[in-house]
Structures are given as structure tokens and as C-alpha cells.
């Protein structure tokens, strides 16, 4: 559908909350070059954008039936796309609306339904376009600041292992049965540490993300396989993500603790952060005064971002200013 084609121009590409605002949008038509200029208020609200879209949609449907005008707004390059808007701008703008130099539009204009306001290329459209950098909302900024720090995964090799044998024949491994009944193996690329147990289970930690963790686990399994054990690669599972995020505003932990007593525990004497046990998703958050958050216990990236989405408005209301 033609009308839907240019609608995304109003939003940004993925339709997320990052609202991109175009002051001017150039569009090329199959029939002739037309320029559609939207001058929109820079307001960070997505709902208003959607509202706008709906209105455009409605208009598009009736656009074909009406006769077309060409309206050129030379002064402020405000070009109108809906009757409603038009009257508004006619009321407000001081510049007179000059009729188009071209009396009619050639070709199949109804195929370009939205804008009855076509302008010939009198001015360089680029001059009228102002780039506005996208303004991310606080929530999405915080979301973007999520950084995975550690990823713990487990895998089963499906065979019994002789730990001493593994310890003796591999580099960068430690084995101290008195202290810990597993071999600690390290690999350098991707940098990860693994605990290998006699049962054939491997716990791989220290990798930065799930992919690295997977690669590391595979490499370890391969190493053990090369030592002559019938190693398979079973039940690989990410057990835990540790991620950090930064809210960029300080939080009043005392007040948060008061209001969320059943989830939160804040004992500055013992630990400077507030421990927040979220029930769904099951993630533990360590929230610090300076607005930094540590997420632990999440099983997936999704859970972590979900947890941040839930906690953000809460923390927002306990912002210290």
C-alpha cells in the first residue's frame, strides 16, 4: 500500500521509543518530484506520533477522492498534509500561501495519495531540512547502558572424568582437591574460566556474553575430548547473567527500602547497596546510591531488560535531586 510506505518516516526505523523527529522529509515520487515537508513539534511523545499517523491514514483514504491542491509555503516551508493542519497553519503563519506555479499535476497522482500538497523543486530541499539528533528517553538510555559483565553457563560432557589426569595434561589448570573438588581450567580466547567436575559437568564463567560462553564451553569440551574422554556436548545452558546498568541519577535508598520493604533489604552497615529481589522476572538487583545497578540471577538478556523496565519507573520516583 502506498500510504503505508512513507508512514515510517514519521517514526524511526524500528518503531521504538527513540523518537526521531524529522523537520523535513524529502520524498521522491514516481510521477514527479514532490517534496513533502512535515514540520512537527519536537515532542518526545510516541503517542502523539501515533496519533499523527492515524490521522494521516484517515486522510489518505479520502485523498484520492478529493481534488488535489498544490500548496507551497515558501517562507517557513511548512507544507500541510491534512486539512486540519492546514487550517491551523493558515491561521498561525504569517507568510502567504502561494499557489503552485504548476497548475496541475501530471500523471497518476492518486497513486501518491497522502499529500495533496506537492511542491515543485523550487528550492533545494536540503536547505530546508534540519537534522535533529534523536533524543532518547531516560528509560531507553538506561536500557542502552546495560552491559553484560559475566555469563555463567553449564554443560554436561556425559562421561565420567579423571580430574587428576586432566589436571596433569592441560595447561592453565588448577586442581586442589582439599580446597575444591573440581579442576579449574582457563582458556585465553575467549577468556573464560571453567570448573570441571568428576561427573563430567562443566561450569563456564568469566565470558562476557552468551556467545563467548558457548564458544568457551565448546573449546573446553574439545580439549577434554582430545585427552581421550568420550566427551559429548549435552544440555548447554546459560545459568546466570551478570549485568550492570547506569541510571544516571542518584536514588534515595532509604525511601525505596521503606516502600518496598518486602522485596528490598538495605543495610548500609553490611553492604552499601540495596538488594532488591524481584519476583517476576526472578532477578536480584543491587541498587547503589549513585544510580548504578547490578543484575544477577537472570537467565537471559530478556529477563534483565525486563527487570530494568520494571524497576526504572520505581527508581525514578525515588530519585534524589
Amino acid at each position: 500500500m502506498e500510504s503505508s510506505e512513507h508512514l515510517p518516516l514519521l517514526r524511526d526505523a524500528d518503531g521504538s521509543e527513540n523518537c526521531l523527529h524529522f523537520t523535513a522529509v524529502g520524498q521522491e515520487d514516481s510521477v514527479e518530484k514532490v517534496q513533502v515537508l512535515h514540520n512537527k513539534e519536537a515532542d518526545g511523545n510516541i503517542s502523539s506520533n501515533e496519533l499523527m499517523m492515524d490521522r494521516n491514514n484517515e486522510d489518505n483514504t479520502i485523498a484520492g477522492t478529493r481534488d488535489k491542491h498544490n500548496v507551497v509555503d515558501t517562507g517557513k516551508s511548512n507544507v500541510l498534509n491534512t486539512p486540519h493542519q492546514r487550517t491551523e497553519i493558515e491561521r498561525t503563519s504569517t507568510t502567504p500561501i502561494v499557489p503552485s506555479t504548476q497548475p496541475h499535476i501530471m500523471g497518476e497522482v492518486s497513486l501518491t495519495p497522502t499529500h495533496r500538497t506537492f511542491t515543485p523543486q523550487a528550492v533545494n530541499p536540503h536547505n530546508t531540512m534540519v537534522a535533529i539528533t534523536p533524543i532518547a528517553s531516560g528509560a531507553s538510555q538506561a536500557k542502552n547502558s546495560i552491559k553484560l559483565q559475566n555469563c555463567v553457563s553449564s554443560v554436561s560432557l556425559g562421561c565420567e572424568l579423571k580430574l587428576l589426569d586432566i589436571y596433569c595434561r592441560t595447561r592453565f589448570s588448577e586442581y586442589n582437591p582439599a580446597r575444591f573438588q573440581g579442576v579449574v581450567m582457563k582458556i585465553l580466547e575467549p577468556r573464560a574460566t571453567a570448573l570441571v567436575f568428576r561427573s563430567g559437568k562443566i561450569v563456564c564463567t568469566g565470558a562476557r556474553n552468551e556467545h563467548d560462553s558457548y564458544i568457551a564451553a565448546r573449546k573446553l569440551a574439545r580439549i577434554i575430548q582430545k585427552l581421550g574422554f568420550p566427551a559429548k556436548f549435552l544440555n548447554f545452558k546459560i545459568q546466570n547473567f551478570i549485568a550492570t546498568a547506569d541510571l544516571r541519577f542518584p536514588v534515595k535508598l532509604e525511601a525505596l527500602q521503606q516502600a518496598h520493604g518486602q522485596f528490598a533489604s538495605y543495610e548500609p552497615e553490611l553492604f552499601p547497596g540495596l538488594v532488591y529481589r524481584m519476583v517476576r522476572p526472578r532477578v536480584v538487583l543491587l541498587i547503589f546510591v549513585n544510580g548504578k545497578i547490578v543484575f544477577t540471577g537472570g537467565k537471559s538478556r530478556n529477563e534483565i531488560s525486563e527487570a530494568l523496565e520494571i524497576i526504572y519507573p520505581i527508581l525514578r520516583s525515588y530519585r534524589k535531586n
Partner: peptide, 16 residues
């Protein structure tokens, strides 16, 4: 909750 972040030094076996 502290043990998890410092898995490199302390045993991370607890998780499983």
C-alpha cells in the same frame, strides 16, 4: 548475592 559477581575468585559451583 555477592558471591555471584566475584565468581572468579570464589567457587562459582554454587550456582549449579
Amino acid at each position: 548475592s555477592r558471591q555471584v559477581p566475584t565468581t572468579e575468585t570464589i567457587m562459582p559451583g554454587i550456582i549449579i
